[in-house]
Write a protein that binds this DNA or RNA. Structure first.
Lengths: 104, 104
DNA sequence: TACATATATCAATATATCTTGATATATGTA
DNA sequence: TACATATATCAAGATATATTGATATATGTA
């Protein structure tokens, strides 16, 4: 029950739904890319990423100064169906705006 | 986005998850059956039912003094997958305790 | 009509969650 | 070492949600 509740809770927020879809679309992004693309302050993004990660949607790969977030693989059927549902919402997710000096 | 958010919000509550599963299991129940089975006061149950209905999971059929709640049909793939996921949680849902004089 | 039953809604309070700004930590560079 | 960059976490205030008890509405029965 706990992880299911946590999963639902993670999606009970418009910002997180958009961030999740943004990562799903852009495959791998660092925190400052999201910060820049969404024009939100870093602590806010960081907190939402933690919630999405704890809910089982994301994984982090730390390389150098950066934390790269992407969709966890392999992802279970249920979470995949959620991502699919979100993809169907046709949100106007922002374009990726690189916000740091990671040379990407 | 709005209905998706509402759907997630409706599941972001342990009581509602249990009520939803209870209805899924028992097919059709009236409010006082739930009230009695869960040992919760009526206003609380009534409110949760409204939230689950507005989220697209339930339908109501009013017959006489009673309001019978059941899973909306037909239910879309996404909500069906959620019900399936909840069924897999193995919650210990209470037994149906008829709480009113509906003669069932 | 008067009353009981079943359900819905409201107001007040309690609890949880979100946002912001400040601070902590960790890595890389001059 | 000193400093800048990237990220995480914390505290405070704002906002949202849940619970309770009271009340409203609607149906059926004596």
């Amino acid at each position: 029950m706990d992880i299911f509740l946590k999963t639902m809770g993670s999606l009970n927020d418009e910002t997180r739904i958009k961030i999740l879809h943004f990562i799903d679309t852009n495959k791998e992004v660092c925190v400052c890319d999201i910060e820049n693309s969404f024009e939100m302050i870093q602590s806010r993004i960081s907190r939402h990423l933690k919630i999405l990660k704890d809910a089982g949607f994301l994984k982090v790969d730390r390389r150098g100064r950066w934390a790269y977030y992407s969709i966890r693989t392999p992802l279970d059927e249920f979470r995949l169906s959620i991502l699919k549902e979100i993809a169907h919402l046709e949100l106007n997710t922002p374009q990726l705006q690189s916000g740091c000096q990671n040379g990407k």
